[in-house]
Design a protein around this nucleic acid. Structure first.
Lengths: 335, 335
DNA sequence: CTGAAAGCGCTTACAG
DNA sequence: CTGAAAGCGCTTACAG
């Protein structure tokens, strides 16, 4: 396509000229037409249509002192979890009439909001180190934390889910209903606060049943299929025995199942497996995975609402924690 | 969090004052410091740091006449396919130093790029009707089409994958190697050009082998698990017989498998199933799904490169079509 | 190497 | 109901 750059933009002055009015009037029409004569509105709209005029967002943003944009900072784009989160953020954002900017920190770990191009930012809290979150919070940009925990010294609103309680209930169930006693745990990613909370819930349930947390098998799941698969393979090679593997998320639960199956073990007859999150795959896997459903999309939605509320009224809920739900499927030997 | 809105932004003038230079000099430093005395650069940078100054993107955009932003228009956020596409777009965009804006048209079908807030746009072509694509193309905004086809009268660059050939090769394989003769086809979503091309490839292979396309079973898959599941259930209820179900995408292939299994049929022994795309689930499903791998992420990457090339040099490749790859797994009865 | 000044395309009191 | 004009925060020839 050898086309030239013929992109000569039409501005508000062009519209004003064609309509025979001032730019102020065009501006009023563009912004709803309050207090403009109906006849004038019609003329201006005609000119706008004729010229296919679309306002320049940068100029509007500069004049209005607001970008009408929020940005979402995540660690990485991709995967089911992210996908659901983005969906929630995108819907809420567009419903509120804001634009949505996406940043990924994974490939750019020192990411520090280079510009001032949004009115506020939703930070997937596990995507930034505490220092960076603090820096954002102390800078001149309203922040809402999504998932994770609020670092000490930070007072940005936080929207998250019941990580600790969900893990507690799940473990409780495995202990009381299934009567399992030999547990193995696959930790989540380092520095991931949700992972820590889940681990605490798990630990709490064990302790309450008189089991020593440290005596159970523990390994790194890293929220990754590959890692957990290797870890579990090692466990089996070393002859470790367990009734059930509790993974800090569904991805590592799946890695565990792959490893078990590769070793010729049956799930759940030989070893049961449970996860956390209830990603799409959990329902489809064979056997279907017992897990804890997390309202990912809804929490994202709520985070945006909080941010926008803050932008409009200067305040927001300090902490909102959405409930989780136990989802019993075959992998835990329950049905 | 009852905090007040204390967001008093620091501007280039504040920095200039503190550094004892003009705003022009600060601007030069911010933009690389070309032709500024090393000593001055240091002083200005110090002031920038002291004040935690970050340039206002709107003002920069207005002055530079470019937003340094591209937008991505998709039909819907969510799902594996989208997720991979976004990943490719986001990486390429950020590597090139651009910001990324996301729009979803599904909930806003008459979406017409309301503002002029990006330098160019990547359109997931299946997300917009032809008329809207044309309108965008004729407007003052560089467009690159991603997947789908270019509507007549539009000359925007197109980046896509080999839909027709991939489907042809897959069908060919089923005919020649597997010797299947009774085919059923699950169409993709209406108006989805990729779906049409796949159907054509399928048809071409059948015809070449002397099979009449119209005599085979055909139904709507809609690129959706639910739809295809219902359709296949109907087929079975009506007593239709088939050796293999060819689905226009993996999601509907999975719906088909669910329906078959619900009816007590074995895959692939009783009926084989194949899909298209090679989403993550395809590998994990039981049985693993034979499909055609599509370079979703890479095509997204290339689309961004083309757009940026166009922004810089005023030209881009008219059409780029990425190759696909046959992925043979158990669901087609092949191993 | 540095600064004064115009200009980018809007919005919004302020007057009338 | 409408317009003239200042101002939003930058960049960039142009002078020096």
């Amino acid at each position: 396509m050898p086309a030239q750059n013929k992109y000569q933009r039409v501005t508000i002055s062009d519209v004003a000229t064609r309509a025979g009015v001032s730019t102020a009037t065009v501006s009023r029409v563009v912004n709803g037409g309050e207090g403009v004569a109906a006849r004038t509105v019609a003329i201006v709209n005609q000119a706008i249509q004729d010229l296919n005029y679309r306002p320049n967002a940068a100029a509007q943003g500069l004049a209005r002192q607001r970008a009408q944009t929020i940005s979402l900072v995540v660690d990485e784009v991709g995967g089911e979890y992210f996908s659901q989160m983005l969906r929630g953020v995108q819907q809420a954002t567009s419903d509120a009439g804001y634009d949505l900017l996406i940043y990924a920190t994974r490939r750019n770990p020192t990411f520090i909001m280079p510009q001032q191009n949004a009115d506020g930012v939703i930070v997937f809290a596990n995507s930034l180190r505490d220092a960076e979150i603090l820096r954002l919070g102390n800078a001149d940009l309203p922040v809402v934390l999504l998932h994770g925990t609020r670092p000490p010294g930070c007072n940005a609103p936080l929207v998250t889910v019941e990580n600790q309680r969900g893990a507690y209930e799940l473990t409780q169930y495995l202990l009381e209903v299934r009567q399992y006693r030999r547990f193995a745990f696959l930790r989540g990613a380092d520095g991931h606060d949700d992972a820590l909370m889940r681990e605490q819930g798990y630990r709490e349930a064990l302790t309450q049943h008189g089991l020593d947390y440290d005596q159970q098998v523990i390994g790194r799941g890293d929220f990754e299929e590959e890692t957990s698969r290797e870890v579990v393979t090692q466990w089996l090679r070393r002859g470790l025995k367990m009734d059930v593997i509790v993974a800090a998320d569904d991805d590592s639960a799946i890695g565990a199942m792959v490893a078990l199956r590769d070793a010729g073990l049956r799930i759940p007859e030989d070893v049961a497996v449970v996860g956390y999150d209830d990603i799409r795959l959990a329902r489809f896997y064979d056997p279907p995975l017992t897990t804890v459903r997390v309202a990912i999309e809804e929490s994202a939605h709520v985070a945006v609402e909080q941010l926008i509320h803050y932008l409009k009224h200067g305040s927001a809920e300090s902490t909102i924690r959405l409930p989780t739900e136990l989802v019993i499927r075959r992998s835990c030997g329950c049905c």
